[in-house]
């Protein structure tokens, strides 16, 4: 891995985004609007909103970065730029980490906006520090970017790539504890939820919601999300082939 090439890649991805203001607006505003909507959905029950809102803070970065990365990487593959880059002296890690850095930066802004809105605008009552929320949001981004990169290897077109969202994300969404606590699920489903990384992102957010200090569970959640993010990132890098058929 080479720092110059990695940073050049991150800057290039950001410059691409820079030419696409509508995508930036969607990335930054849609999560805020959804949260606002949800607040009014739970108009008469603000405490229910606390838990679901906190969970969503863990889900937004993962889902958006998953979508953005899977399409962006697929475009690299189909436009021939990936083949060109891999025939040049660019390491696979330079590319993968470059993407993760660029989208990480976008995610910081997104998470900052959503967190700020929920705490100051929507009275979401966190016991813990907002910085801890940001840590989870960042690791979520890493996980989303990694998952997107990984599944793009199995998609031959944008049509297929977007279908991976219901296939990869929805099951995690249903089982992550957003709808009902995970320990009240049917035991098989609970076991499944124990191995899905989004469960830990949501758990982590709820730890910050309920506890003023950094709890052991929070550390565990952070480690699981970071670890699975790195693991999938390595798997994703392995799907980049210098030689193709």
């Amino acid at each position: 891995m080479n720092v110059t090439r990695t940073l050049a890649t991150a800057r290039r991805v950001l410059r691409q985004l820079g030419h696409d203001p509508r995508t930036i607006a969607l990335l930054l505003l849609v999560p805020c609007l959804l949260l606002l909507l949800l607040r009014w959905v739970f108009d008469s029950d603000p405490r229910a909103f606390d838990s679901i809102g906190a969970s969503l803070l863990g889900i937004f970065p993962l889902v958006t970065m998953f979508l953005v990365t899977s399409i962006a990487t697929l475009r690299e593959r189909t436009s021939g730029t990936l083949e060109r880059l891999l025939s040049m002296p660019l390491g696979k890690a330079d590319l993968v980490v470059g993407y993760a850095l660029a989208f990480g930066l976008v995610a910081v802004v997104q998470a900052g906006l959503v967190t700020g809105l929920s705490i100051w605008g929507l009275d979401l009552d966190f016991a813990g520090s907002p910085w801890l929320l940001l840590v989870i949001a960042l690791l979520d981004t890493l996980l989303g970017t990694a998952l997107g990169l990984f599944v793009s290897a199995f998609a031959a077109s944008e049509f297929q790539a977007v279908q991976f969202m219901p296939a990869v994300i929805f099951p995690q969404l249903l089982l992550c504890g957003l709808f009902t606590p995970r320990d009240t699920m049917q035991p098989v489903l609970e076991a499944m939820s124990n191995v899905l990384p989004m469960s830990y992102a949501v758990d982590g957010m709820n730890e910050v919601l309920r506890h003023a200090d950094v709890t052991g569970d929070f550390v565990r959640d952070v480690c699981v999300v970071a670890g699975s993010g790195l693991l999938v990132l390595v798997l994703g890098a392995a799907t980049l082939r210098r030689r193709t058929a």
């Binding site: 290039r12 691409q16 730029t81 083949e83 060109r84 025939s87 040049m88 002296p89």
Partner: peptide, 17 residues
């Protein structure tokens, strides 16, 4: 990789740059 320049038939450039 730095000594061979290769240009594919279909232009491989970033359209959004």
């Amino acid at each position: 990789r730095s000594r061979v320049g290769y240009c594919t038939q279909a232009p491989s450039v970033y359209d959004d740059l």
